[in-house]
């Protein structure tokens, strides 16, 4: 990992650690901790989506479905089969990864945007299953009485505990993804995005890599889904429909598709925008999201991280000796 990324990681970790004290001091925004828990959960999903979309150049419209597969795996296994939540979590990730593999293998062997089409259909199917399999999922009336998480025998209570658990997980996932990017695998993914036939001619099995990164993104989405389940303790199919897949995409795009930092920044920002500030638009929310998407595509296609006027940029600039290229 280059020096620049280490520095940002350090700053991010410190800011995140200090955040709860900051908001508790200001009574009016103390509920921001709750919003940040959701933002962290969505970050876990969007780190995977950023790898898939920003680095490997593949579009998935089923991230909410994988998020849901993780959520319902945890929900069903703990409620109906009395599993330990920590055991249900990896099951959800494995299941989502397996399903992604089944969808991805045929779709990604074809060149072009077939994954977008396949996942669009797949996401709708999964949503229907959540709605109709009432015996398992509770259907539209929801799955209730989902147990919370315990760490070392102590039940996790209160937003602060959840905040540190979720954001600790985000940081671990972030380090994993950064390591991946600055390695043989990350270079291969970026190569596929930039010049697929040359990547193939240089010995990169492009189809296999696309499937693998898709599976990884699905597993991360499922992990986020499991946290979501145990945090809200209630599941409803409405949280896992196409609109949510688009929201995840939008979060990544707003921050900047070709940067994991962008994914984190965009996710936090858009979670606050969605949860806090856009409520007034009610039914027009979709219109607002559409406008943001259009505006970003037209005026800031590389996302917020591409803004050059941020003052800390000088300090964060890559040293001259570094040989990492711009991240695309």
């Amino acid at each position: 990992m280059p020096v620049t990324d280490r520095r940002i990681l350090l700053v991010l970790a410190l800011v995140l650690a200090a955040f709860p004290w900051g908001v508790r001091a200001v009574g009016a925004v103390s509920h921001y901790l709750d919003v940040m828990v959701f933002a962290g959960i969505f970050c876990i999903v969007n780190l995977g989506l950023s790898l898939l979309m920003g680095f490997a150049g593949q579009i998935s419209l089923a991230q909410a479905a994988f998020f849901g597969i993780g959520a319902y795996s945890s929900g069903i296994l703990t409620v109906q089969f009395a599993w330990n939540p920590w055991a249900a979590m990896p099951m959800g990730m494995v299941l989502a990864g397996l399903v992604a593999w089944l969808v991805g293998v045929p779709a990604l062997r074809l060149k072009g945007h077939y994954l977008a089409m396949a996942t669009l259909g797949f996401g709708v199917i999964v949503h229907i299953v959540f709605n109709e399999e009432v015996r398992w999922t509770g259907g539209p009336s929801g799955l209730v009485d989902i147990p919370g998480l315990s760490v070392a025998g102590t039940p996790l209570r209160g937003e602060i505990a959840w905040y540190y658990l979720v954001w600790g997980t985000v940081l671990v996932a972030l380090v994993f993804c950064l390591n991946l990017l600055h390695s043989r695998v990350g270079r291969a993914l970026r190569a596929i995005h930039q010049e697929e036939k040359a990547a193939e001619a240089m010995g990169i099995p492009t189809a296999r890599y696309k499937v693998q990164v898709f599976v990884l993104s699905a597993a991360l989405a499922a992990l986020g889904g499991s946290f979501y389940t145990h945090y809200v303790a209630f599941l409803n199919p409405g949280s896992f429909d196409l609109m949510w897949s688009i929201r995840f995409m939008l979060m990544v795009m707003v921050g900047g598709m070709q940067s994991l930092w962008g994914a984190v920044l965009g996710t936090v920002l858009m979670t606050f925008v969605g949860n806090e500030w856009l409520q007034v638009f009610a039914d027009y929310e979709v219109l607002v999201y559409g406008s943001i998407l259009l505006g970003m595509a037209l005026f800031l296609p590389d996302g917020l991280v591409s803004l050059k006027s941020i003052p800390v940029r000088g300090w964060l600039r890559t040293p001259r000796s570094s040989t990492e290229g711009t991240q695309r």
Binding site: R187, E195, K197, T323, E324, G325
Partner: peptide, 11 residues
């Protein structure tokens, strides 16, 4: 030319 244009020469 089909280089990976946004990567460094070394990469």
């Amino acid at each position: 030319v089909a280089l990976f244009a946004h990567m460094s020469v070394l990469e």
